[in-house]
């Protein structure tokens, strides 16, 4: 996972911190953001390349679905993994985003790790085929 950078967008520090630490222990570089506004500031940093964004679908102020749609339009090369409370947000999924949350809360760190690795492997396969 050399240099693979994951941005975690999660407003709850108590949820975000241990997940970020777990992913760092697994060899990822991890950037933590509180909300979509902070995430956009991070994405604008010229010296920082984000490979994967893991975000809560139920973020404060701006929904994760809307942010995921914005990511697809503005940063199509970045993998986006939606997570969060499926029941609460499923209704919004259809109108805002083609994919619903892949992982629900409370986060199982190993499942998050596996999903990130799965996305990286799928992307690598797609690049090989193209």
């Amino acid at each position: 996972m050399d240099n693979h950078c994951v941005m975690l967008i999660e407003s709850d520090l108590v949820i975000r911190t241990p997940l970020a630490q777990y992913l760092r222990d697994c060899g990822f570089r991890v950037v933590e953001a509180f909300n979509a506004e902070e995430a956009r500031i991070v994405l604008a940093q010229a010296d920082l390349t984000i490979d994967t964004v893991f975000l809560d679908a139920d973020m404060p102020e701006e929904s994760g679905f809307a942010f995921a749609a914005w990511m697809r339009a503005n940063h199509p090369g970045v993998e986006v993994i939606l997570a969060g409370s499926v029941e609460k947000t499923a209704a919004k999924a259809g109108e805002l985003c083609k994919e619903g949350p892949a992982i629900s809360k409370p986060y199982d760190h190993k499942i998050v790790l596996d999903e990130i690795r799965r996305r990286i492997a799928a992307r690598a396969r797609n690049m090989d085929e193209s």
């Binding site: 520090l13 108590v14 911190t17 933590e32 509180f34 902070e38």
Partner: peptide, 13 residues
């Protein structure tokens, strides 16, 4: 490092 963006966040932690 634990990152907090406000005093409330930090106190809560």
């Amino acid at each position: 490092v634990i990152e907090a963006r406000s005093g409330e966040d930090a106190a809560g932690y």
